[in-house]
């Protein structure tokens, strides 16, 4: 365990340049992870209710319907 910690320390934390770089990369990766996870959860919960899920059932009739109503 301690050797792993040591390796991590030597690789990322020891020099300012590496820690700054790993913070920048880490923030980007974390943001993507949270974003994708949240979107997945939201769309999983609301399956069949969002516009991209129901769009197809309206597609063709719309144009005819709107034009005939005018």
């Amino acid at each position: 365990m301690s050797s792993v910690t040591k390796t991590i320390y030597n690789l990322f934390f020891r020099r300012s340049a590496t820690i700054a770089l790993s913070v920048v990369v880490g923030v980007f990766a974390y943001e993507r992870l949270i974003d994708k996870t949240a979107d997945y959860m939201f769309e999983r919960r609301n399956q069949g209710k969002l516009w991209k899920h129901v769009q197809s059932q309206f597609k063709m009739p719309t144009d005819e319907e709107e034009e005939s109503s005018e």
Binding site: M41, F42, R45, N46, K49, L50, W51, H53, V54, Q57, F58, E65, S69
Partner: peptide
């Protein structure tokens, strides 16, 4: 708290509003 609008219903609602 995490439930979206039912967009099929919103679309039909727009048709009701319009007509």
């Amino acid at each position: 708290p995490f439930d979206s609008l039912d967009h099929a219903s919103v679309r039909r609602g727009f048709e009701v509003y319009k007509q």
